[in-house]
């Protein structure tokens, strides 16, 4: 089993002799109506991250624990959880930084829980699709005309926003999303900007229809937590702020020169 062998490798980092208690959020809909916390005593190994401790539980203490992970290196975005109340990638959060514990591990906030640490993310997937996160052209140029060239400066315009790994930490940290489930939310807006600001893209108008609305960018009150927790320095708050500026200019343009608007 791949998981076994990887966990085996990981636990080969030397044990420090210490142990730490993980208080893990458990919810098994067929067994309990209310979530409960279950405590596990886990040995601390050098350089272990919280995900290693969870894998230790799963492999050695309690195989019924459910959670998502894949890459173990901050790339896939699937291991996001609340660690001691903060939205974190568990594969990038060192156990030693949280000693002596206990370490409380919970599913990402603001999302329905499917089971244990697994959240339901359909809402995010639908919102993401609604902003058409791909390059939109009015007309594709013929193949023989070659590639769409881009200067380094044009790349720099959107590159930061393309680093998003859909980990949803920003949604778990955003108080507005917690209060207003209809809010499009940080990562989706950042990803829309990733295409809006791409010199090859012509789809900003279509995305505005979804985003330049009360439930789009205008529900954001610039709390800024999204950018605080983002593990990839996407800075979604800046993406939203930039969007507000361009939408406001557009709004005044439409007001002053109604004939020029499409």
């Amino acid at each position: 089993m791949a998981v076994e062998s990887l966990a085996g490798n990981v636990s080969e980092t030397p044990a420090t002799g210490q142990t730490v208690t993980l208080e893990v959020f458990r919810y098994r809909p067929e067994e309990e109506t209310e979530p409960v916390y279950q405590a596990y005593e886990v040995p601390v190994h050098k350089d272990w991250v919280v995900l290693d401790a969870l894998n230790h539980i799963k492999d050695h203490l309690d195989g019924t624990l459910s959670y998502r992970w894949s890459c173990r290196m901050g790339v896939c975005g699937s291991c996001g959880m609340m660690v001691n109340g903060d939205a974190r990638l568990t594969c990038a959060t060192f156990v030693e930084s949280l000693l002596p514990g206990p370490i409380r591990v919970e599913p990402l906030e603001n999302f329905p829980v499917v089971r244990d640490l697994v959240i339901e993310m359909t809402d995010f997937m639908e919102k993401l699709e609604s902003v058409k996160p791909w390059i939109i052209r009015d007309e594709e140029k013929p193949l023989e005309d070659g590639e769409y060239l881009q200067t380094p400066a044009q790349l720099a315009d959107f590159e930061q926003f393309s680093m998003c790994i859909n980990c949803l930490l920003c949604y778990a940290a955003c108080p507005v999303y917690g209060l207003e489930p209809g809010f499009t939310g940080p990562a989706v807006i950042a990803l829309a900007q990733r295409y809006n600001l791409d010199s090859r893209d012509q789809g900003a108008g279509e995305r505005n229809a979804v985003l330049d609305t009360d439930e789009g960018i205008w529900q954001c009150t610039l709390v800024g937590e999204c950018s605080e927790v983002c593990p990839k320095d996407v800075d979604p708050a800046a993406a939203i702020q930039r969007y507000k500026v361009s939408s406001t200019l557009q709004w005044y343009r439409n007001l002053l020169m109604p004939w020029s608007s499409k």
Partner: peptide, 16 residues
């Protein structure tokens, strides 16, 4: 197309 929201107006006063 006029925008469906007046938020940009309030926001611009807020920002200024």
């Amino acid at each position: 197309m006029m925008k469906r929201t007046i938020e940009p107006f309030w926001w611009s006063l807020f920002g200024a």
